[in-house]
Write a protein that binds this DNA or RNA. Structure first.
Lengths: 104, 104
DNA sequence: CGAGTATACCTCAAATCTCGAGGTATGTAA
DNA sequence: TTACATACCTCGAGATTTGAGGTATACTCG
C-alpha cells in the first residue's frame, strides 16, 4: 500500500456529496482542506478520465452558456470504491501513528 | 504537498529511537505498523542513500561476523527534518479528515 | 475599450516514488 | 543439501504529480 494516490479517494468523496464538473471538484477539495490539499489540473483530469474508464464515475455533458460542461457523478461501483478507499486510508493513518508514537 | 513519500519520515522516526542498519529499519517499520506499512528493499536503500547524501543520517560501518554492517543514526539536521515532516504529515491528515468529513 | 483575471477544459515532458525481479554472500535449520 | 533468513545492492517498469503550455469565453476594473 504505502499511501500513493489519495486523489481518487478525494474525488470520490467530493462527488458523493454533489455532482460537479472537474474544475469545481478541485476547488472544493482545496476549500475543504483549507488550501492544504491542492491538486493541479494536470493531475485532476487524467484521474477523472481513469475513474470514468473504470466505471466509478459517470459524466453528463450539459450545455451552460453555450459551452459544454462535463458534470461527474458517483456510480454504485464508485460508492463501493469510496468505502474501500476510506477504510484503506484510515488503516494507513493508524499504522503511521503506531510508528510515529515510537517505542513505548 | 499531497502525500507522496512517507518513507523518509518513517526512517527518520525509527532512527530517532535507535541506530540500526537498513534491513532492520524496514523490519522495525513493518513490525510497528503491524504489517500495514511494508516498504521493499528497492525503495528502502535508495531512500537511505539520499537521506545520507543530504546529511539527515550518517552511516557507521562496523564489522559483525566478518561482514560489514552499515549502522545508520540520526544527525542534528535529521532531527530537524523529522520534526518538520511530522508536522507536515499531521497537517495532511487533518486536511484529509476535513474533506472526508464532507459537508456539515 | 483594453487588460487582467476567473472559469473550464485539455495535453505533454520531466521528476519522483514504489514495486518486483534480479544479483551477491553468509549462517542456520530441516 | 536444500531452503530460508539475514544483509546488501541495482535496474526497468509503472504510477502519480508537477509545471508549463494550449484553447476559449465571460466579467470586472480603470
Amino acid at each position: 500500500m504505502n499511501v500513493k494516490g489519495t486523489l481518487p479517494l478525494l474525488v470520490l468523496q467530493t462527488l458523493s456529496e454533489e455532482a460537479l464538473h472537474g474544475y469545481a471538484i478541485a476547488q472544493r477539495i482545496k476549500a475543504r482542506s483549507k488550501g492544504v490539499l491542492d491538486f493541479k489540473e494536470g493531475t485532476l483530469y487524467p484521474t477523472l478520465h481513469s475513474l470514468e474508464e473504470q466505471g466509478s464515475i459517470e459524466a453528463n455533458s450539459i450545455v451552460v452558456d453555450g459551452r459544454i460542461r462535463h458534470i461527474y457523478r458517483l456510480t454504485d461501483k464508485g460508492n463501493k470504491m469510496l468505502e474501500a478507499q476510506s477504510l484503506e486510508w484510515a488503516k494507513i493513518v493508524g499504522a503511521m501513528n503506531n510508528v510515529l508514537a515510537g517505542a513505548k
